[in-house]
């Protein structure tokens, strides 16, 4: 690598560059830090002192309060259950489809792939009324199944897109050898190919998890009972009732984003991969 003599002007330029990049980082992070701080404050502190001040007494009881009294624990577990079920279903079904499209030989595979990809760009508001009507006829309104099915269907195209890139890199010889050994097609899929896709599976799992955890419109439209609501819609209700209680609102928001932040800390590389794969190849 060439080593350049750094001129003073170049040094200043670099310093400015780092300053700008640093400022962007502050812009992206500071609102969350601020949120965390006001989630630990009481109203007297929020309305009486500078919003930039650190919390005086760290009021972790804000968290206990919303978790128990605010029904947030219920919403939280609903989110966990609905997210987990949808993610598992989406990833398994999408793996079946991707395997059939990329590894098996059939005439319509290209057309079917295109059909799946069409689903990617559809605005959900263009399907919401018929979907609502359909669920009503099936008696699935206010039933978590309506949400799970919608999540699986609407995340399928992206999941297939991410999986496909990986499936296409696997050498054909894998199946050839397996067939020679007399493996059935199901064994080839479940015991040979599927385990090989572990890295990309974790990418699709984390991406799906984030999308489902954060989803709002379907739950807001199809679910009316508190006992089935997920966090995104639940915190909306909650905030409607506690409008001026900033500490409680802050605590609720932090609770809703904590699982995502934890996932991010451990799986940030996978998340980055998933985002890049989902759009670059599309």
């Amino acid at each position: 690598m060439a080593t350049h003599e750094k001129k003073p002007s170049k040094k200043i330029g670099m310093a400015l560059l780092y300053l700008v990049l640093g400022l962007i980082a502050v812009f992206q992070i500071y609102p969350l830090v601020w949120l965390f701080f006001f989630s630990l404050k009481g109203n007297s502190e929020i309305f009486g002192r500078s919003p930039f001040a650190l919390p005086e007494n760290w009021l972790f009881e804000n968290y206990a309060r919303v978790w128990v009294d605010g029904n947030i624990s219920q919403y939280f577990f609903n989110s966990v259950l609905i997210t987990a079920t949808s993610v598992i279903l989406t990833v398994i079904l999408a793996s079946f489809v991707t395997f059939a499209i990329t590894r098996m030989k059939w005439k319509l595979s290209g057309t079917v792939l295109l059909l799946f990809m069409i689903g990617y760009m559809i605005p959900i508001h263009s399907t919401l009324v018929p979907l609502f009507q359909f669920y009503r006829e099936l008696n699935l309104i206010d039933n978590p199944l309506s949400i799970i099915l919608a999540y699986v269907a609407y995340n399928m195209p992206l999941t297939i897109m991410i999986l496909m890139g990986f499936y296409r890199t696997l050498p054909r010889e894998i199946e050839e050898a397996a067939v020679m050994d007399g493996c059935s097609i199901h064994r080839i899929f479940f015991q040979i190919i599927l385990p090989m896709t572990k890295p990309v599976l974790s990418t699709t799992i984390i991406i799906n998890m984030i999308y489902n955890w954060n989803e709002f419109v379907f739950v807001n439209t199809f679910i009316s009972s508190d006992k089935y609501k997920t966090l995104t819609v639940g915190i909306q209700n909650f905030i409607g009732q506690y409008l001026t209680d900033w500490g409680a609102i802050g605590a609720t928001l932090i609770i809703s984003i904590i699982p995502i932040l934890i996932a991010f800390i451990f799986l940030s590389n996978r998340i980055v991969e998933g985002i890049a794969a989902g759009s670059v190849k599309g």
């Binding site: 799946f116 399907t127 609407y154």
Partner: peptide, 20 residues
Amino acid sequence: YVLPSLILLAGLVYIPIILT
């Protein structure tokens, strides 16, 4: 392998689009 997903998408995406 393909039909369950395709039926799901037909029911929840393609047909609703036309019905809208």
